[in-house]
């Protein structure tokens, strides 16, 4: 792993694009994800999240542009695959095989494998190891998937909508497991986790990438995002354009206009606007081109 590439992040994509037939699932994707954090990959359904993760695993090949992951180009070769852990959408597994057999499978398909840790993790959560995984609950299966991915001791963990199908309690348990694993790895593990709603992931993430309409809308640390975005509330007649900020989303009511803006200059003359600090979910929804009510929790 070259030192120079590592400086540019664990994951670095340049003009990355993927076309299926005549449909561009992802285009002009430019992201730099720093090492050692937990990154939320957020976007509406069909925004290209799954495609991006598959390109990063090397499961799919890009149509244009390039991705550099841990200093390598993603490919289906063992030296690259040893570095990453991946949990596909809906956690596909061999339904008749037990969790213990899956761990055994992993032990035989990976040079580097920490099966003891996985067993400890799953028994701690009360996941039965001797039952076919087809008979486990969605939450338990997701935990088995996570345990398998972590047992590889990956440097990068890619999780595709891991909590989308889980009930609220199972979500919390899954995210807690993940946060513990990230803490245990002490900066050696980078996690990228996709979701169509940030609220799922907010509490464990420190970096956010927003994909919408196949493009990167935002790629930044969550703290920095919060610092540089504001909601401006003012009369309908007010002039919205201002070099001090960029309007991300404007919504107009009968007599009032709400703007969500990215500040180019923190010191700006706010009159006639009333300024409020948005939460991260409002910012994400603005970038996804949705209002909070439209994109509300399902």
């Amino acid at each position: 792993m070259g030192q120079a590439t590592e400086d540019r992040g664990t994951v670095h994509t340049v003009g990355l694009g993927k076309r299926y037939g005549s449909f561009w699932a992802l285009r002009n994707c430019e992201i730099v994800i720093p090492r050692g954090g937990v990154c939320a990959l957020v976007g509406p359904n069909g925004a290209g999240k799954t495609t991006l993760l598959k390109l990063l695993t090397g499961l799919n090949r890009p149509t244009e542009g390039s991705a550099t992951v841990l200093g390598q180009t993603p490919k289906q070769e063992s030296d690259y695959l040893a570095e990453i852990g991946y949990l596909a959408q809906e956690v596909p597994m061999y339904k008749q095989m037990t969790a213990a057999q899956h761990l055994e499978l992993g032990a035989h398909m990976n040079k580097q494998w920490d099966g003891q840790l996985a067993v400890k993790r799953l028994t701690g959560l009360g996941v039965p190891l001797d039952k076919p995984v087809g008979k486990l609950s969605g939450g338990q299966r997701a935990q088995v998937g996570l345990a398998m991915a972590l047992a590889k001791k990956p440097k990068l963990l890619l999780l595709d909508e891991p909590v989308a199908a889980l009930d609220p309690l199972a979500r919390v348990e899954f995210l807690t497991s993940l946060a513990e694993a990230a803490a245990d790895a002490a900066g050696e593990l980078t996690v990228i986790m996709s979701s169509h709603l940030l609220s799922d992931l907010e509490r464990v993430c420190d970096f956010v990438v927003i994909l919408a309409a196949g493009k990167t809308q935002l790629s930044d640390e969550i703290d920095h995002v919060l610092k540089t975005h504001r909601i401006l509330i003012g009369p309908r007649t007010a002039e919205t354009a201002n070099p001090a900020y960029t309007v991300i989303k404007a919504s107009h009511a009968a007599s009032q206009t709400d703007l969500l803006v990215r500040l180019n200059d923190v010191q700006f003359r706010s009159a006639p606007w009333h300024v409020r600090e948005p939460d991260i979910e409002e910012i994400v929804l603005a970038y996804m081109g949705q209002t909070k009510t439209e994109g509300g929790v399902q």
């Binding site: 695993t57 499961l59 289906q76 695959l81 852990g85 596909a88 596909p92 597994m93 499978l105 398909m109």
Partner: peptide, 17 residues
Amino acid sequence: NDGTNLLAWTQGVSRRR
């Protein structure tokens, strides 16, 4: 069909092997 190829192909074994 079951998507288990995604599981198998992201272990430490190349797809060819």
